[in-house]
């Protein structure tokens, strides 16, 4: 299987990429690692006239932490993020980066591509929503930053305007007493998750000062489970509180019926994963070392 013919353009700078994408118009697609895009092209689901390769643009793959803020360039691969000091310091980032697909896909796939594909099965949009991240974009109208919550607007549709690209993402370094977990379930390593859940808690003892919960592969877009957060915030974490949060997360989901499972199965899974995510986040808040990632058979 190979894609339908397209013209290939290699951008050497962000400005050149924006110029090319704007000029080439709606038949053009931006190419980063290609781990989502090439799959769509090979099944001829999409037949663009032109690909603009962003992968050689210098400086877009930096992973850095400065003044309490973490910044990850759009071209940083999942594998590099997983091996970074950021991932060592923030376990929820490691959970997600290591959980995506397999070693080979993580070598090529980028955080920017994962975010921009708009595929509801992608993990970074849900993880970044859990961390309340900002998406940094640059286009013909200049630079802007958007909250990641809502960036993926619909199936394969994002807030990006014509000619606009994502240059990076940023989020606040979780403070003391704050920790999270990103847990998912998939049928095997290379498969997309059946569902996945991100939980970030800020605790004072057993009291939940703040909570953020987002769901991946649980509907047509990433889902920010605000009602589930509200069940936790200001509460002492106990069995009943956690049950209500899991129920609220399930209620916020709208899983599709596909080969990965029925909606009923996926709802049960979301319930389990929210509870597990809360459990791991809570233990990490208490300083315990816990290794989790996507589980598979």
């Amino acid at each position: 299987m190979y894609p339908a013919p397209f013209r290939y353009h290699r951008a050497e700078s962000v400005a050149e990429a924006i110029g090319m994408l704007s000029e080439l118009g709606e038949g053009a697609r931006a190419l980063a690692g290609g781990q989502s895009l090439l799959v769509l092209l090979k099944i001829r689901f999409d037949e663009p006239t032109d690909l603009v390769d962003l992968a050689r643009i210098p400086g877009l793959d930096a992973i850095e932490q400065r003044d309490g803020e973490v910044r990850i360039g759009a071209l940083a691969t999942h594998a590099r993020i997983a091996r970074s000091e950021i991932a060592a310091a923030i376990p929820i980032v490691r959970d997600c980066a290591n959980g995506i697909a397999d070693n080979q896909v993580r070598s090529r796939g980028t955080i920017g591509g994962n975010l921009c594909s708009g595929d509801p099965s992608c993990d970074w949009p849900a993880l970044l929503t859990t961390l309340d991240a900002q998406v940094h974009c640059e286009g013909p109208a200049g630079k802007r930053s958007l909250p990641v919550d809502g960036f993926v607007e619909d199936l394969y549709a994002t807030a990006l305007q014509e000619g606009e690209i994502v240059t990076g993402v940023s989020f606040a370094l979780p403070g003391p007493g704050s920790a999270g977990a990103y847990v998912g379930f998939k049928r095997c390593a290379p498969a997309y998750p059946t569902t996945s859940v991100g939980v970030q808690l800020t605790l004072s003892g057993a009291d939940c000062v703040d909570a953020r919960i987002a769901l991946g592969s649980s509907g047509l877009t990433p889902i920010h489970a605000t009602a589930a957060e509200a069940e936790l915030r200001g509460q002492t974490l106990g069995e009943a509180v956690i049950r209500r949060a899991a129920e609220a997360a399930v209620a916020a989901s709208d899983p599709i019926d596909d080969q990965r499972g029925s909606p009923a199965f996926k709802r049960r899974l979301i319930d389990t994963l929210v509870r597990r995510g809360i459990d791991v986040a809570r233990r990490r808040c208490a300083g315990e070392q816990v290794e989790v990632s996507h589980e598979y058979y």
Binding site: Y8, R10, L31, G34, Q35, L38, V39, K42, D53, A55, A79, N103, Q104, V105, S107, R108
Partner: peptide, 18 residues
């Protein structure tokens, strides 16, 4: 699977131009 610049990749999902 082949190694590209030392990293394993699925060569069915990499363009030769990449």
């Amino acid at each position: 699977t082949v190694l590209l610049n030392g990293e394993p990749v699925k060569s069915c999902t990499v363009l030769a131009v990449q």
